[in-house]
Design a protein around this nucleic acid. Sequence first.
DNA 1: CGCATTCGTAAGTGAATACTTACGGTAAGC
DNA 2: GCTTACCGTAAGTATTCACTTACGAATGCG
Lengths: 101, 101
Amino acid sequence: MANQLGFAALADDTRRTIFERAARRPSSVGKLAEDLDVTRPAVSQHLKVLLRAGLVVQRREGSRCIYQVDPRGVQAMREYLDRFWDRALSAFKLAAEQEDM
Amino acid sequence: MANQLGFAALADDTRRTIFERAARRPSSVGKLAEDLDVTRPAVSQHLKVLLRAGLVVQRREGSRCIYQVDPRGVQAMREYLDRFWDRALSAFKLAAEQEDM
DNA sequence: CGCATTCGTAAGTGAATACTTACGGTAAGC
DNA sequence: GCTTACCGTAAGTATTCACTTACGAATGCG
């Protein structure tokens, strides 16, 4: 859930902005689309991607749809990345040590 | 240096594989392309993206070009992500507290 | 010098994707 | 019931992007 999808979901500028807005406060689609140089349907599609990546959750409130960050997905993504960097750096250090010999 | 470029650089499967190989040991382009289902020029192009993201560095060795992980870039990317997740989660918690009142 | 190795890049192609407009469907207010 | 607000999705388009083949430049070796 938190690997390829997560990277791809946050690789887009507009989508990352939407995610950060949803993190600031749970908001409706129309609210998230305000002052954003893309149309509301575009925001809907971006939210769909963030949903599939497990980074946000949705909740109906009357006729509006509220999106907010899913802390579990964020946590999972964060842990995956920590392991990712750890592997990269530990392998690098190992290679550096072998270089010295 | 470590934001949009970093996300986009690691969003691609092939590129992430190449990065992990370069992390395991400094390698030439041809070595990185071995047993990879893309051609060597494709690997060259991927390395260019990783370079611009500051995740790897290159060094000439005779006629070969050795690529290895840049720990500074990795560290910078990691710190950027830590702040990114922290902002997202802290805003969520703040919103959750206001919800309780 | 001739030839092989290694690499980067230009040019072209097909697929993914970010975006738009148009439309239908559901909930709220009169 | 009718209109309005809010939203998701289908369809189409333009751009991005990952990939290939073809070529030229730089290094090493005989």
